[in-house]
């Protein structure tokens, strides 16, 4: 992980501005503080899943019902969710913003963590557009992810390239 500071509250502010209704997630070590902060946000319902492959179909069901979900899973779990991405996001034209924890990201390329090494090639393989967020300074890109997903009726990935900071840490 790199040294950027990413505060959960700032990401949640972006989600609230986008009128996100549900945050479908399987927590991981990098996003632990995000999970804690979300539990205090009354406008967003957290939906914990038991396995990452459930996240996309749960979000698809929510979207069909008129809600505005996002998912948040780690890169390793994103690989596990590959067939759901194929059949129930790309295959149906689901406009879904997917926050993917970029475990092992160090911006140098030679990471010993294969979960990081494969993430961007994997997104290219599926032809999923994405960008990487490494600090609060990058959050202005978040609205673009929602715009792109809606305009294309395709999923769009936001790779979280740093650990969420504990609230109060500057």
């Amino acid at each position: 992980m790199i040294n950027g500071i990413l505060h959960p509250k700032n990401v949640i502010d972006q989600l609230v501005r986008q009128k996100v209704s549900h945050y479908v997630t399987l927590p991981d070590s990098e996003t632990a503080h995000m999970y804690e902060a979300l539990m205090a946000e009354p406008s967003i319902t957290v939906v914990p899943v038991a396995r990452e492959g459930e996240a996309i179909p749960v979000a698809a069901g929510l979207f069909i019902a008129g809600q505005n979900p996002v998912i948040s899973i780690q890169n390793a779990g994103f690989y596990e969710a590959g067939d759901a991405l194929r059949g129930l996001a790309l295959g149906i034209g689901l406009p879904l913003v997917m926050f993917i924890g970029y475990r092992g990201h160090n911006r140098k390329g030679d990471t010993p963590d294969s979960a990081a090494a494969f993430l961007e090639p994997y997104l290219h393989l599926w032809r999923v557009d994405y960008f990487v967020i490494e600090s609060d300074d990058d959050l202005e890109r978040v609205p673009l992810a929602f715009e792109r997903a809606a305009a294309t009726n395709q999923p769009f990935a936001v790779a979280i390239g740093t650990e969420y900071a504990k609230e109060g840490v500057e």
Binding site: T45, P57, L62, F63
Partner: peptide, 25 residues
Amino acid sequence: DIGISNGMSKASSIALGVALGKPET
């Protein structure tokens, strides 16, 4: 009706999403 194909077993997960999104249905 929705018949889930190309979904590798995810009918229960999609049903959960619809149920949470439309609690009166």
